[in-house]
Structure formats: structure tokens, C-alpha cells
Simulated assay, not measured.
Amino acid sequence: MTPRDCADRLWAAVSARDEFEAEEVVLGATEAGMDPETVLLEVIGAVQHRVGQEWAANRLSVAAEHAATAINERVVSALTLSLPRVRPTRAKVAVACVDGEWHALPARLVAEVLRLRGFRVDYLGAQVPTAHLITHLHRTGPDAVALSSSIATRLPTAHATITACQAAGAPVIAGGAAFGPGGRYALLLGAQAWAADARSAADRLATPLPRPTLGHQAIDDLPHLADQEYTMVSRTSALLVKSVYAGLEDRLPRMGEYTEEQRQRTAEDLAHIVDFLATALYIGDGGLFTGFLAWTADILTARSVPAGVLLPALELLTAELRDFPRATALLDQAAVVLSTTNPDPALAGPGPAPRAQHLPGATTT
């Protein structure tokens, strides 16, 4: 049986929330001779990737996505417990998620692949506060830190964590979707290395990472932060969301009919937009913001919500940030992208948004 066949069987079991069958598929694959690393990455990892795709296409609810992820996590545990123990003979690696990052399964897969290859691994799991991570480094002295993040808005925290790890003498290899195509943000933020997946992380760690430069400061990586736009936007994010929400109520009278849950979800979605804008200002890459909005537009479309409902929010946010040239340039660029790819002039000005009860919490899985 091929890895794809096993992945299809595991997907069927996960979709049916049949944990017993899911374990049978995975354990049966290794008993039939499939390499455990292949099972971890090309079966379990492939199914988890499909879970995300199905949620994005609105074919899987948030609750169902969480249930599927939980089954996959338990299947990983069942698989690793069934395997012969590998005596660690290679470097010690601390594997952790950035503080605020709850998507732990990618990091778990990295940790298990490293263990299979003989590394000594401390797997610290999801949402590791930077101060706690540094304390752990001082106590255990790992040869490297593998830092994982899937959510781009955690990049400022990731930057602080990378810098703190290096100050503690530990080089960092970063991984996860948050760090951008080709790991561009990992290198920008000063990480010693980046890996696209668990296999490449293990391959890279087979050779010692270069030791960090002492005395390095985070501002050295991003001199554009001297303009303080990121600081001001991030510090006033709650006020920005409140002001934009009030402006939307004036533009979209139907919002007066919203339930309390719809109001809360709309405010959450506006907060995501502000957070991604702040992160783009931090990184200095407008593509991060426009890419997020294009992705959000696809999510809205899959949920039968006109993507044009984003345009009034961008216009109101531009007015609030009129004294911030980098921020307004990003917002103008995003508005052009949305207008081009999702033209809906009726939604750019006052008036009700047809079928749009609220902006779904498309970034909160």
C-alpha cells in the first residue's frame, strides 16, 4: 500500500471521528513495512494538511477541524509508542512553538522525526512563553532551538524569541508557514537556518548550526522600525478596531440587525486585519498584508460572503491612519488588489452588504 492510499484511509477514519480505525491504519502501515518517518509525514502530515484545506473550503467546521487535529495528535502518540526506542547519539535540540502559536502538530512531527534520527529532543509543545524557553535553555544547554510558527502575526514575537535564544548562546532553525515562502522572514529575523519541513530540518541539523553573534540587537535586523509605525499601530489596535467598527455600522445599516455573536465575530475579524497590517509594518513587506487579504477574500467567497465587504473596512482604516505613510501605502495597495480580483463597487460605499451577516472568523482556527 502506498503512502497516498494510507492517507486516504486515514482521512476517511478522521472524517468519521473514528480514532480506533485511525490508529489501525497507521499501525498497520508500519507493520506492513512502511518507514515510520514516511507514515508521520506523508500519511499523518498529509491528512492534517488536508484538514486545513477542507476547513478553508468551508467543508469542515472549526469544531470538526479541532476534532480531526486531536485524533491526528493521538495517532502520532500511538505510532511513536509502538516503535522500538532509538538511543539518542546526536545533538540536543529544543523544539518549541512561538508564544501565541497553538498549532503544535507541525512542531510535534519535527520532534518525532528528529527522535527517529537519533537526536536528543526536548519537545516543549504549543505556545511557549519566551522567558520560559530561555530558562529552559540555560538549564539544559541544547545545541539548537527549532522554533515553529504557522501564524504570521506571531512574527514580532518570533523575532524577540530568536534574539533571546541567540543571546543565550543557542542557534535557531525556524519553520512553519508564518516564516513566509522560502523562509524569507526567518532569515530576515536573524535565524541561523530555515527548514521547509521536518525532513529538511533533520537534514540541516545533522551539521551544527553556526553559533550566534554576541551583542546582536533585534533592531539591527529591521531598521525601518525606527519610524515607530508598527509600535503605534500595535499599541492602538483596540481603538482602531472600535473606530472602524463604528464606521462600518454607519456604512452598512444591516449591521444594526446583528446578533451579539455576529458583532463579536465582526470585531474579531477587524482585529485580525489590524494585526496583519501591524505585522506587515514590522516585517516591512506589503505582500504579507495583501496576501492575507487575498486569502481572506477566498475564505469569504467559500462562505458565500462577498469579498467586497473588506473594502469599506480598509477605507475606514486608511482614514484612521492617514498620518502613517507606510501603513496607508499598504492599505491602498491591498484595496487595489481586492478591487481588481473581487470587484464589487456596490459594497465600496454606504449601503447594506447583501448576504453578509458578518465577516466570518476566517483566521481563528
Rank of each mutant, 00 (worst) to 15 (best):
E37R: 11
V98S: 07
Q48F: 06
K92L: 14
R59W: 03
D99T: 10
S82V: 08
W102L: 13
P36D: 11
A70N: 01
A56P: 01
A70V: 01
L41R: 12
V76S: 03
V75S: 12
N58W: 00
A64K: 03
V39H: 09
C97A: 11
I44S: 06
R90Y: 08
R50Q: 12
L83T: 00
K92E: 13
Q48C: 10
R90W: 13
Q48R: 12
N72S: 15
P84T: 12
A70P: 00
H66M: 04
A56N: 00
T89V: 14
N72M: 15
T69I: 07
V51G: 00
T89P: 02
D99N: 05
A57H: 00
S77E: 15
G45V: 11
S77T: 15
L79D: 04
V93N: 05
V98A: 09
L60Q: 04
C97S: 08
V86R: 12
E37P: 05
V39N: 08
L83E: 01
G33V: 02
V93H: 04
G33W: 13
A67N: 04
H49I: 01
V39D: 10
R50P: 00
P84Q: 05
A46S: 15
R87M: 14
C97H: 07
P88R: 12
T69P: 01
G45E: 10
V86Y: 06
A67W: 05
A68G: 11
R90N: 08
V76C: 14
G52D: 10
E101I: 12
V43L: 03
G100A: 03
D35N: 11
V86T: 04
H66K: 06
